[in-house]
Design a protein around this nucleic acid. Structure first.
Lengths: 184, 184
DNA sequence: ATTATCATGTAACCTGTTACATGATTAG
DNA sequence: CTAATCATGTAACAGGTTACATGATAAT
């Protein structure tokens, strides 16, 4: 039950529409939580019903009108309560790892392409994260000392970067292993 | 739709009961896929209905009887088909990261304990993985060159180890950041 | 013409979690 | 006597995915 809370955090950082939230989940929030627009609209409806968020109808020209959501007092309270509850460490889901172990019962060499493809996708992600870090957290845009929000955003981004780097190194290990096995 | 496939891989490595599968998902398979016994029994029922697996009733003394499942031809074919399909790189879900960014709107110092707790849990996991590696993949029990299955199991375990090490380093970064913010 | 972007939603389905339920044996 | 291990399941609910659905503007 954390999509609600991820949305609350995002709306506290910056109010916005369901569409805008969906875009943020593709970008910055995407490196620690994912959600599609269908999920977001559903949850926004529930959160509005529960009084966690307020809506403001924003008419626009040359674009469809939008509903801008912002966090209400009850939402802030719900977030605060959740922050003080312990959660259990997340467990991983690596579909690719299932495939790698499954390859023992099929042709390991056939997996090489797939692993290379994943390596490419993770390289792209890492590149985007690093570009974001350079843009938002270095030079004149570095967070001022005491800018808690920005500092915390940065440490989470560093987590995303560390994850992608570790994944790339592991995929290279996997490729070397698969190639060694394919040679015989 | 990978629980089916994870179960197929596990049953190919070693036939077993739903209970045994649940235990494996807590251990070796747990570092890349999780499932509870409820989920496993439900999926085993469906897989049996689809003819992917065969059941053998095994009477036992001093223990409840068990149903031993093994992979049928149709199951092997289904696994093989899935192995040849491309999958999209897994997206991450780090509930703790949601909390860290949320802490900007609450008390960051209050998160320190929680992060320390997670650090402890990941340390335990890493210790277990390393013990498993030592036991199963070094010394006299090292996989013979050409033992594809064992080699692939090892590379997946190395992925679990790399993940835990990266996570621990990141959590230390998070702790340092939170402590710095709490000092002011 | 076609594709991309902005903007919102419904419906059906599949997956995952939590709680409930039973019952024997073995070790402390 | 209490907890752990072995063994299997049901039921209700929450969360996530896929497909369908609409409709405007702007850029190529």
């Amino acid at each position: 039950m954390a999509l609600e809370h991820a949305i609350l955090v995002s709306l506290l950082e910056q109010p916005g529409s369901g569409y805008e939230l969906a875009r943020r989940f593709e970008r910055s929030i995407g490196y620690f939580w994912t959600a599609t627009h269908q999920q977001i609209y559903r949850v926004l409806g529930r959160m509005e019903g529960d009084g966690w968020i307020d809506v403001r109808h924003v008419p626009q020209e040359a674009r469809p009108d939008k509903k801008e959501y912002s966090v209400a007092a009850a939402g802030r309270a719900a977030l605060s309560a959740w922050l003080h509850e312990p959660i259990q460490p997340d467990s991983v889901r690596h579909e690719l790892a299932v495939k790698i172990r499954g390859a023992a019962f099929d042709d390991p060499a056939a997996l090489i392409r797939e692993v290379e493809r994943h390596h490419g996708a993770h390289t792209d992600r890492l590149t985007r994260y690093l570009a974001g870090e350079l843009r938002d957290f270095t030079g004149p845009d570095a967070p001022a000392p005491g800018d808690t929000g920005r500092e915390l955003q940065h440490v989470v981004l560093r987590g995303g970067i560390a994850y992608e780097r570790m994944t790339l190194a592991w995929l290279e290990d996997v490729l070397a292993t698969l190639r060694r096995l394919a040679e015989r």
